[in-house]
């Protein structure tokens, strides 16, 4: 069975210079689409990517990068909305490039669909009450 997941990979400084993603693709036959990345030599780095392939290969691939020292987080847990601060205005709706915020025409509430989110961070500073939080 083929699966596809959006992940945040955290690279500790000691492995930033290793070709971990290259090995992941070559040895586990997975395909990837990088959505966002920040990798600086000798510093911690992160890559936000969508990883797809056969379930068993995906599982072994994840096992490999984990053993290589990469910390994995699901993207849907990385950008969160603080519901106490959100005032349901709608500024995020026009700022978001992936349409992760939808204004429900009936309730007039802003729905955040974090499966569409690619963690670009544009909403974080655009949000007037600063309700959007990036957790990586």
């Amino acid at each position: 069975m083929k699966i596809s997941r959006k992940l945040v990979l955290h690279f500790p400084p000691r492995i930033v210079e290793q070709p971990v993603i290259n090995n992941l693709i070559k040895d586990y036959d997975l395909s990837f689409n990088i959505l966002k990345a920040s990798i600086i030599p000798n510093q911690e780095g992160y890559v936000v990517l969508e990883l797809s392939g056969e379930q068993d290969k995906y599982d072994s691939g994840i096992k490999y990068i984990t053993s290589a020292g990469v910390k994995i987080e699901s993207l849907s847990h990385s950008v969160l909305r603080n519901e106490d601060r959100c005032t349901q205005c709608g500024v995020c709706v026009s700022v978001c490039p992936t349409k992760a915020f939808i204004l429900d025409q009936k309730t007039r509430l802003v729905v955040f669909d974090n499966n569409r989110c690619v963690a670009c961070g544009l909403c974080i500073k655009a949000c007037p009450p600063r309700a959007m939080e990036l957790h990586f």
Partner: peptide, 23 residues
């Protein structure tokens, strides 16, 4: 405006509110 998009000079423009209608 409240449909989320309107025609401006022949072009569809996405729009959003700063004022919270649900509040």
């Amino acid at each position: 405006l409240k449909t989320g998009s309107f025609k401006l000079l022949g072009k569809d423009v996405a729009c959003a509110s700063l004022s919270s209608y649900s509040r």
